[in-house]
Nucleic acid binder design. Structure first.
Lengths: 213, 213, 213, 213
DNA sequence: GATGAATGAGCATTCATTCAT
DNA sequence: GATGAATGAATGCTCATTCAT
């Protein structure tokens, strides 16, 4: 990462920094007031830039929305990566991933709220979010944990449940909601309630150690 | 029903008709361009009325949104009622209800699309939609079909799945999606995939006869 | 008064009553929300009449404004008449009239507030109010109490002071303000501060007995 | 003054000019049609600007009203200052100030009419206008010219008289009205008509020389 | 007479976007 | 590159007035 930056000319580096200022400003505002509730000039002002400067970095309002959503999902994925991949079973990865994704959204509500707004006002977010999920599900299917095969609809269903989980957590629901969402995921994928529970319980230690990081 | 209308004075009849013109215009536009994407004056124009006339019938833009959403959910519930209640098991009712709700939304895409927009832009729609669902779920819980107890989060999850189902169908997915959503509902509620499948299959005849009405 | 009404045909009587209902409704609303802040349909509704009925009784919004203002000034003058005319000196009448006018406006704030709004939004009110004043001033001039002669400007000045007095009283100022306004009137008309004070004091008994009515 | 302008960057200069265009347009229109009778878009059009440009310079309609009123009272005070302060007696200052204020309003009817509208539709104007007045009155009280002490009501009374004077002048009354208003001020403050006349006469030379500027 | 449905111009305000400097 | 002034269409809502019934 620093490696990448180091290779930029000063000009390019500045450009990158300015762009980041804009994206961060947008994230702050959009997570507070919603995507549609945030105007381009508010973003520019928050980034301490002139109105029109915005359009030197983004062709469109929609472009920065995409950038912000991407940045948030990337950040959230980064926050998760390491541990999940040490799990061997797809089912465990799914459960772990789901529960953790929800906890991260709750721990960093700026991200969580942006996500909620994006679910509503930026369709494409779903692709970003589901990327990590697809692999885990596919792995589980391959391993025979799940009866369900992977297609658009099952993914959409999992996403819908994930979303409901985040919304509940941001609205004040207890952390247990994340665990339940994880089990619902497994059930939808075809596991019995009992198995789903067992698998999910097995991920708890990891989640807890993660939380205490 | 016609009886009720017949008893209206001409004045009242006209009022009712105009209000309906507005509601229908709103439904048409909102299902096409979304709720927020539809302006009050567009509605008035579509209804062939003057701008200000709108406010003789609705205090607010939000009031017509509520009216339209209510009208749609009412119409959809009416379209379902009769057969579902003849089923004795809560699980069957849930499966039947879910599948049918999705099929109605697909058969009458104006309703379906309005619903999708409302999920996003009119929170309260969830209460309207979940009303019928709660009873069926509660019945199933009482009967011991489901291991899950009824709380906000489980209902939100079911709604989220329902929504995903409608969206998929409107997006061109095959009818089978409705059946799957129904099974997912049962799985989330704690039934095994096999049981869920069996229950749902049992409702097929009813659904089919309904569809051919 | 009843005599006048008795001579009307039932048709005419009804017309008069309806008109009064409208005027009273207008008074109530306009004194609360101001003249411009009151809409024709609000008046009709408050009078329990249909929207359009208003225009059978008044050609214009401005016409009912005139009617209401006239009614209020008439009512206020009625409330004053008797005692003032028993005073022999113009100066005493002016003092008495001024002080009393202000007290009536304070005692019946519906009237007072309407007046304030009218001063601002219905120029012609000044003529109505000044009618009684002119005579008293003219009398005082004739009697040599005042050095000032009667013309538009002196009357406008007296009105302006009267208005300031009412406004202060409605805003919570003590009753003493009415007495001061009365003395200011006399001073403007040319009396010395001492004489003005003496004359005004002499009217106090009358005012007090009036207040205890 | 020109010095200040010269030091502005072209950007700032333009901004200042545009803002002035708006303020001047507003003054022109508001003095013609009243404050409430002037819409934001009329102002923008009169200033040859687009509708929305207005809001780059003023947060609110009320903000430009305040700005215009302030500008006018400032301009009027500037037109007066120098000579009044050379008078030693509070009574003379009051008389001079009043008479002159009225004459300026009459000489620059755009200002005068704006003031009349503001008296009605922009309460705060009274504070702006009374500022200079309070000092003169207080001075006179201290010097023992006046028997009346300074409080809200006496100031409101003086303002009311001032207003009546301006209104009369704008309505075509002769300049003598200004002199009379000045004497009324002194009388209200407790001076005898004779003293008031004497004091006011003494200010005439100053006023005349001012008028011939 | 009375009703109340209908009108449509009008208003304050917002905001994505463009462009001269 | 960067600025920020300018645009102008759009929005939700109000209200005096008209007119068919």
């Amino acid at each position: 990462m620093t490696g990448r930056k180091a290779s930029l000319s000063p000009r390019e580096a500045k450009r990158v920094r300015t762009r980041q200022r804009l994206t961060e400003a947008a994230l702050r505002l959009m997570s507070e007031r919603g995507i549609n509730g945030t105007s381009v000039s508010e973003i520019a002002t928050e980034a301490e830039l002139a109105n029109g400067t915005f359009y030197l970095y983004f062709k469109d309002k929609s472009e920065i929305v995409a950038a912000v959503c991407q940045a948030v999902t990337l950040a959230m994925h980064n926050e998760m990566d390491s541990r999940r991949l040490s799990l061997e079973e797809g089912s465990a990865r799914v459960a772990f991933g789901t529960q953790q994704f929800i906890e991260i959204a709750a721990a960093e509500p700026t991200w969580g709220r942006l996500l909620m707004s994006a679910f509503t006002e930026f369709e494409a977010i779903k692709d970003d979010i589901s990327r990590y999920m697809r692999l885990d599900v596919a792995l589980g299917v391959e391993q025979g944990c799940f009866t369900e095969s992977v297609d658009e609809f099952v993914i959409d269903t999992l996403l819908a449940i994930l979303r409901a989980g985040i919304e509940a957590r941001l609205g004040g629901a207890k952390a247990e909601v994340g665990a339940r969402a994880a089990e619902y995921h497994l059930r939808v994928l075809g596991m019995s309630a009992a198995d789903a529970h067992r698998v999910r319980l097995a991920t708890d230690k990891v989640v807890e150690s993660q939380a205490s990081r």
